[in-house]
Design a protein around this nucleic acid. Structure first.
Length: 287
DNA sequence: CGCCAGGACAGCC
DNA sequence: GGCTGTCCTGGC
């Protein structure tokens, strides 16, 4: 249990397009719950409850307090989305249809330690599988918050994970990812990632790629979702198809990522998430 | 049951 | 630097 419950409440009126659904279902965050029109998001020592009613966001915070400003930052509501959209449309007008379709999606600002583990778990895995692994881990080692008889588990701290037994690790069924995870929790903690924030893009990227289990794609996801690098451009199989479909570009992940960053500049990460959302949820088939 | 989806890495050139 | 084979689980 996390201390005494605070139960802060408030509301946010987004000034520009914002959709909780698009933001949560685009694969940046795996662990959230949806029930009766309400979303629950574990975030560090807090549980955030969100409800969208006629474009107002009503929130409650359980566990550790979060300010209005912090919540906006977590949800990407601090980004000037109209400016970003017109910037991207200008960089490549062929992309307008994608921007239109995904409008409302925001890049979140997530805790890097958890994000790193989440994307190590994501290697060669589908979203439901990733979610199950992360939930199991949180149930073993994370703090629990109970609301109205419903239990929610926060993501474990580095200090919790260092004491995981071999057996508990094996129950996560990580397969070949297990060795990456076991080494990761031994060698890294939250502070390591907080310190990365002071480096520039290329330095951060290099540091991440030194970690076993973090390659080009996973590294760029961590940069984009948790290390304030909106120009990162992670290339997975979807984006690979998309780059061919929209720009007739092919090549390695590294090369396509550089191409995407050249086309879309400082907000390439938004273009990447928009593209992912479009490829997965629009009717347009690219292969 | 077989088949497929999904990235990192070592080993090779 | 790029290419190839291998690694494992769960859903269909």
């Amino acid at each position: 249990m996390v201390g005494l419950f605070t139960n802060l409440q408030g509301e946010i009126e987004p000034k520009e397009a914002f959709s909780i659904e698009k933001t949560l279902y685009c694969g940046q965050l795996f662990r959230f719950y949806f029930k009766d029109g309400v979303f629950f998001l574990p975030y560090l020592n807090s549980l955030l409850k969100l409800e969208e009613k006629s474009s107002t966001i009503y929130y409650s915070v359980f566990g550790e307090a979060l300010s209005d400003l912090q919540i906006k930052k977590i949800l990407g509501l601090n980004h000037s989305i109209n400016k970003i959209n017109s910037y991207l449309a200008k960089r490549d007008p062929r992309f307008k249809i994608v921007i239109e379709f995904a409008n409302g999606l925001r890049i979140m600002s997530l805790p890097p330690y958890e994000t790193a583990i989440s994307f190590i778990f994501s290697i060669q895995s589908s979203i439901p599988v990733i979610k199950k692994r992360l939930n199991t881990l949180s149930e073993y080692a994370g703090h629990c918050i109970e609301i109205g008889g419903e239990k929610f588990h926060l993501f474990p701290k580095s200090s919790d994970l260092k004491s995981l037994s071999k057996k508990e690790i094996s129950l996560l069924k990580l397969g070949f990812r297990e060795k990456f995870f076991a080494e990761f929790i031994k060698k890294y903690d939250e502070t390591f990632f907080e310190n990365l924030k002071q480096l520039n893009y290329e330095e951060k990227r290099k540091e991440l790629l030194k970690i076993k289990g973090i390659g080009e794609k996973v590294g760029q996801c961590i940069l984009l979702f948790s290390l304030d690098e909106l120009s990162a451009f992670p290339v997975d199989v979807w984006i690979k198809r998309g780059m061919k479909y929209f720009f007739n570009e092919v090549g390695t992940e590294r090369k396509l990522s550089e191409t995407g960053r050249k086309i879309f500049g400082e907000f390439a990460g938004y273009a990447q998430e928009y593209m992912y959302y479009f490829l997965r949820f629009s009717d347009v088939k690219t292969c």
